[in-house]
């Protein structure tokens, strides 16, 4: 029972990790809490849903298209809107991204209606058994893809010129500008990459849970907890934060009544913020 919960937690944790990586990327690089990140995840999930329902494309195969579309959405929003206020005060960016979040929620409501949507794949009942622990194939696939994308993202940040430029901008944007980094463009790419990661998270969520246009809020709550737990540090921190949250959730369901789980999550969030503001793993700034 406990072992099963741990396995479930690890499988789910990788998805939470991708949520955390995308969210803390924008926070770390631009010092914005993007309250619309949950909406980006939601768009990804809806796109994946539509590709499956309308064209019969398997959600695992449509991930590249979903990522591309979300990248463009993120890039355009940053380039033409957010770049105009990105260095403003916290109220400005928080309020702005919240406005974006409810606007996107409303658009999704008009397109996909208020019903809960989910994908029931033909192989959704298939599972592997490993020493008494049951691993559904879908959840395993979701886990593998989340892990692969995390590794790819890590390599992107460490090995490519754009990734290094993003890190440089995060550390010192004036300095980056002086050495010839086009900050406007880098910010837009950062938001695009973050949105693409959100899109993947959405595409990975839709085969395992159902969504509606109002799920952006609860998802952003999870993103808070993950990035605060992991600290704003590295990809690894966000992944670890995702794992911790998923494990707490899955093991928690076997021990604590569900009505107290939400309470527990937020109490942990506040306590970590107050007593360990660098997260459980203690990193101070982005990608140092």
């Amino acid at each position: 029972m406990l072992l099963q919960a741990i396995i479930n937690g690890i499988l789910l944790g990788a998805v939470y990790g991708t949520i955390g990586i995308g969210f803390s990327l924008v926070w770390g690089v631009m010092n914005i809490i993007n309250l619309a990140h949950g909406s980006f995840i939601m768009i990804g999930a809806y796109l994946s849903y539509t590709f499956y329902k309308a064209y019969g494309i398997d959600p695992f195969l449509s991930i590249p298209i979903v990522m591309l579309i979300l990248f463009l959405i993120g890039y355009v929003i940053q380039r033409f809107l957010l770049n105009l206020v990105v260095r403003g005060s916290i109220f400005i960016t928080l309020t702005f991204t919240f406005g974006l979040q409810i606007l996107i929620a409303n658009i999704c409501l008009l397109i996909w209606k208020a019903d809960f949507r989910s994908i029931n794949l033909p192989y959704s009942g298939v599972s592997m058994s490993l020493g008494g622990v049951i691993i559904p194939v879908i959840r395993f696939g979701v886990f593998i893809i989340a892990v692969i994308l995390t590794i790819l993202f890590y390599l992107f940040m460490k090995r490519t010129k754009v990734g290094l430029a993003i890190s440089a901008t995060a550390q010192n944007y004036e300095g980056a500008r002086v050495v010839g980094v086009d900050v406007k463009n880098i910010y837009s790419i950062t938001m695009g990459v973050s949105a693409a990661l959100a899109g993947v998270s959405g595409a990975l969520i839709i085969p395992i849970m159902s969504i509606n246009p109002f799920i952006g809020g609860p998802l952003i709550g999870k993103a808070f907890v993950i990035s605060v737990l992991g600290g704003l540090g590295s990809t690894v921190g966000a992944l670890a934060g995702g794992l911790v949250l998923a494990l707490v959730e899955t093991i928690g369901t076997t021990i604590i009544p569900s009505s107290f789980q939400n309470l527990l999550g937020f109490v942990v969030l506040v306590l970590v913020l107050v007593f360990m503001p660098q997260g459980l793993f203690g990193k101070r700034s982005y990608n140092e």
Partner: peptide
């Protein structure tokens, strides 16, 4: 359109 209009007002106000 309630939420969408509020969202648009927010974005315009901030910008």
């Amino acid at each position: 359109l309630h939420l969408g209009i509020l969202g648009t007002i927010i974005i315009i106000t901030v910008l």
